[in-house]
């Protein structure tokens, strides 16, 4: 297990390095002169040149690359073109609401998704399975912003039960969390079902039944723990996706999170900000994946004793 953790940690660091390198070079591929973008079209060439120099843009790319890593290591993610303030500060403010939204959405999705999936597997070939899978199919197909808009139309504008936008009270959470949670409940329900169906066909389930165990024990003790392994992977994966993927829902509900910041920054060509946001979210992704890998160790002794 110790070797496993070290190996996974090492792999995570490598991926993180790869991501930041990729982002660094991608952002430097963006056409146009960042200094020009910052200062606007009317700035004199001299001012642009002096800014270029102070930003180190005239240095060779490799020098800039190593400087970027040095800065990142010191926690300095650069300054926003738009506000000229350290991007770290802005991100620190915006990350809270996004994390709240992501965790609330995933929490809801796990509760509903796993129970619906288990239910569908347990009642295979009955109307229960048909209904659950149909709803799940709709869930993965209705875009979350369309669902969000429909919720807004009905609950906020027609019934006036919920606020249309913003962030603050628990009522503000309802519509965005449902918009996100429905999709991921559906994904998790589908994965849970197919995983459980596969596990229920295993030889050791037949052994368990041959012992005379009740269907409930077979389901909860023998099938669920094995069946959850792919669910944990997917849930981890999508939690990470949610960290960056709330973009659309945040835009719709004017949620003051990272996703909206990312869109605003792209429209304003605020590259240091984009670079930092992607870096932060990818780090979150890598960290979550690492934790998911560790959780395998607890679920699956084959990995624990590797």
């Amino acid at each position: 297990m110790k070797h496993f953790i070290i190996r996974r940690a090492f792999a995570s660091v490598i991926v993180l390095w790869g991501v930041s390198t990729l982002i660094f070079f991608t952002v430097h591929m963006i056409p146009g002169d960042p200094a020009r973008v910052m200062l606007g079209v009317r700035a004199t060439p001299e001012r642009v040149e002096s800014l270029r120099e102070s930003m180190g843009l005239d240095d060779p790319l490799l020098t800039q690359y190593f400087r970027f890593f040095g800065n990142v290591a010191r926690g300095d993610l650069g300054r926003s073109f738009r506000t000229n303030r350290p991007v770290g500060h802005e991100i620190a403010v915006r990350i809270g609401p996004t994390v709240q939204l992501a965790f609330a959405g995933m929490g809801l999705a796990l509760i509903i998704g796993v129970s619906a999936g288990v239910l569908a597997a347990a009642f295979r070939d009955t109307w229960i399975e048909t209904v659950v899978m149909m709803v799940a199919m709709i869930g993965i197909s209705v875009p979350n912003f369309v669902l969000g808009m429909l919720l807004m139309l009905y609950f906020s504008l027609h019934l006036r039960w919920l606020p249309t936008m913003g962030h603050g009270t628990w009522q503000h959470f309802v519509a965005p969390v449902i918009s996100l949670g429905f999709l991921y409940s559906a994904i998790i329900a589908r994965i849970t079902r197919s995983s459980m169906v596969e596990i229920l066909g295993m030889d050791y389930i037949r052994s368990a039944r041959a012992k005379g165990l009740s269907e409930r024990v077979v389901m909860t003790k023998h099938a669920l723990k094995n069946g959850l392994i792919p669910v944990v992977t997917i849930a981890g994966l999508y939690l990470a996706v949610l960290l960056g993927g709330t973009v659309v829902v945040e835009t719709l509900f004017s949620w003051p999170g990272l996703g909206r910041l990312a869109v605003e920054s792209i429209l304003a060509r605020d590259y240091p900000m984009i670079q930092a946001i992607i870096l932060v979210i990818s780090s979150g992704f890598v960290l979550i994946n690492f934790l998911v890998d560790l959780s395998y160790g607890f679920l699956d002794p084959r990995i624990r004793y590797d």
Binding site: T26, V27, A240, G245, V247, I278, F285
Partner: peptide
């Protein structure tokens, strides 16, 4: 596969946004 892992660790829509940032 390392390259694929790296791409996969940037959430899809964010990756798309980054590419749009480059291409417009």
């Amino acid at each position: 596969m390392r390259f694929t892992d790296i791409l996969l660790s940037i959430p899809g829509i964010l990756l798309a946004i980054t590419i749009i940032a480059v291409l417009g």
